[in-house]
């Protein structure tokens, strides 16, 4: 599977028709999702050029949700407002083999993009969880159309009961906690208990120190690394926007749960 192919397939996925702001729903766009997942593939498939961005649709939409704007017209939004900046220093080693032939769980899957990406990249078993039945219905149609076997569960990620250490990797684009403070860290806490190998997650860069400290000290992660920073500017578009431009930055993290050493394959 080439990155372009993956992005193309993800681009065909159906997204939220009526997003629920209280759940901080926004699609994980094909560009971000495909790159997020490619990061976790073995080295041979990886090239630094994957981190040169052309579209930041999903993050922009996420931002729109953060500022509380009506979502609908944004679904067709294609323009690039941001510049995607990523440190090239760590790129060569940012490929860990955390998806192929693994058991992967997508927490707060929404319309299923990250889980679909994992399945397309040869995860052996994908388990996608969301609280919202309408999202799950769309997600399962998305999986079916690509003939992927993905298991879906309707549950609050924070309430689900787990046994054993079967899940290797958790991938997630969690709620940023705008509606419910700390929601992203609540998700992270559970993810670090459930995953045995790695957790990939997006968090606001403004919370970077807090995320790192909390992951290492409170959730006992054995490592917490920012793989890349997604940074973009949003020009004034709404009457309630006070500033001319808003700069928003999000980190893609890789966490290693307690008692598992970082493995670079």
């Amino acid at each position: 599977m080439k990155l372009k192919q993956l992005e193309g397939l993800l681009g065909g996925l159906q997204q939220f028709p009526q997003p629920k702001v209280e759940l901080e729903q926004y699609p994980t766009g094909p560009h971000i999702a495909s790159r997020m997942l490619f990061t976790v593939l073995p080295h041979s498939l990886y090239s630094p050029s994957f981190f040169i961005s052309r579209s930041l649709q999903s993050l922009l939409i996420k931002f729109m949700i953060l500022v509380g704007e009506n979502f609908d017209w944004l679904l067709g939004f294609k323009t690039i407002f941001g510049a995607f900046a990523c440190s090239s220093v760590n790129q060569a080693e940012n490929s860990f083999g955390d998806v192929s032939n693994k058991v992967v769980a997508d927490f707060g899957c929404g319309c299923g993009t990250l889980g679909v990406a994992a399945a397309l990249l040869s995860a052996e078993h994908v388990l996608s969880i969301d609280i919202d039945p309408e999202s799950l219905e769309i997600a399962s149609v998305n999986a079916e159309e690509l003939e992927l076997d993905i298991d879906f569960i309707q549950s609050n990620v924070l309430d689900l009961g787990w046994r054993g250490s079967i899940v290797d990797t958790v991938i997630m684009n969690p709620p940023f906690g705008t509606r419910k403070k700390g929601a992203d860290l609540d998700f992270l806490s559970v993810a670090l208990k459930v995953a045995s190998q790695a957790v990939y997650s997006l968090h606001k860069t403004s919370t970077r120190d807090h995320v790192k400290r909390t992951a290492l000290r409170d959730f006992h992660a054995s490592s917490a690394e920012v793989i890349c920073e997604l940074r973009f500017d949003v020009p004034k578009m709404y009457k309630f926007h006070k500033k001319k431009e808003v700069d928003i930055a999000v980190d893609l993290w890789r966490f290693v749960p307690a008692s598992h050493q970082r493995s670079t394959s």
Binding site: V103, H125, L127, D149, D151, F152, I153, D159, L160, G161, W162, R163, G164, I166, V167
Partner: peptide, 13 residues
Amino acid sequence: MRLLTHNMLSSNI
């Protein structure tokens, strides 16, 4: 739902 999923779920009431 596959039985692999069943094998990792428990009731959390």
